[in-house]
């Protein structure tokens, strides 16, 4: 991977400060990695509640290990936090798959399989935004392309070949759709929060 990057050096410095008992460094660590950890957890399939729990657990364990000096290579702090988040998510789903049990204590941990009201609201808003993005994309080709890329497991090369697109053109369509989607979704979310 070559010489340590600026990111690696910053990570190492952060880990050293935490180990030295600097409380502000702990706060910095959470701020620095919070978004990334959430992306990893969501990608592993965590719903909103699991995401919050696992997010908290990731930082609890990470800080505990760094304080104790269990992080052997501080320059690999990024890799350590990312791996920890992914492993916790994997464990979470493994445990969830083993449930349900008849033990009343574990029954308390079982979440309803139905989406919460908040989940339903967000799903509705996301679906609405997607609908609008699809409308705005204008061409049938772009709409089909997005559907196939996001909802199927087909290779990108295959999709490009079917649509007679270069990789660059394909990326452009994806990027445009994502940007527009984000814009619409943020606008709706702000309106809801206000």
């Amino acid at each position: 991977m070559g010489p340590p990057s600026a990111t690696a050096r910053e990570g190492a410095s952060l880990a050293e400060r935490i180990r030295a008992g600097d409380a502000a460094a702990e706060k910095d660590l959470v701020e620095r990695y919070s978004r990334g950890v959430r992306v990893i957890l969501r990608n592993a399939g965590a719903d909103r509640f699991a995401e919050d729990d696992l997010h908290q657990e990731t930082f609890r364990i990470a800080l505990e290990k760094i304080r104790k000096g269990d992080l052997r290579e501080p320059s690999l702090l990024n890799r350590f936090i990312a791996g920890l988040a992914r492993n916790l998510a994997t464990d979470h789903f493994r445990r969830k798959a083993r449930l349900p049990s008849e033990d009343p204590e574990t029954l308390e941990d079982i979440q309803s399989p139905h989406p919460s009201a908040l989940d339903r609201l967000v799903d509705f808003e996301e679906a609405h935004c997607v609908r609008q993005v699809l409308e705005e994309l204008g061409t049938k080709r772009d709409r089909d392309l997005l559907r196939r890329f996001y909802l199927s497991s087909e290779d990108k090369e295959q999709i490009c070949a079917d649509f007679r697109l270069s990789s660059l053109q394909f990326n452009r369509v994806l990027f445009r759709a994502q940007e527009r989607y984000r814009e619409l979704y943020e606008r709706r979310r702000r309106r809801r929060d206000n």
Binding site: R32, N78, E126, R182
Partner: peptide, 24 residues
């Protein structure tokens, strides 16, 4: 993951892609 975990540009893009996928 080790790269994007503290890369704001990648996180912007990833969050947009995740949201779009979820919306789809």
């Amino acid at each position: 993951e080790a790269h994007f975990i503290d890369c704001p540009q990648c996180l912007d893009r990833l969050e947009a892609a995740q949201a779009l996928r979820r919306g789809m």
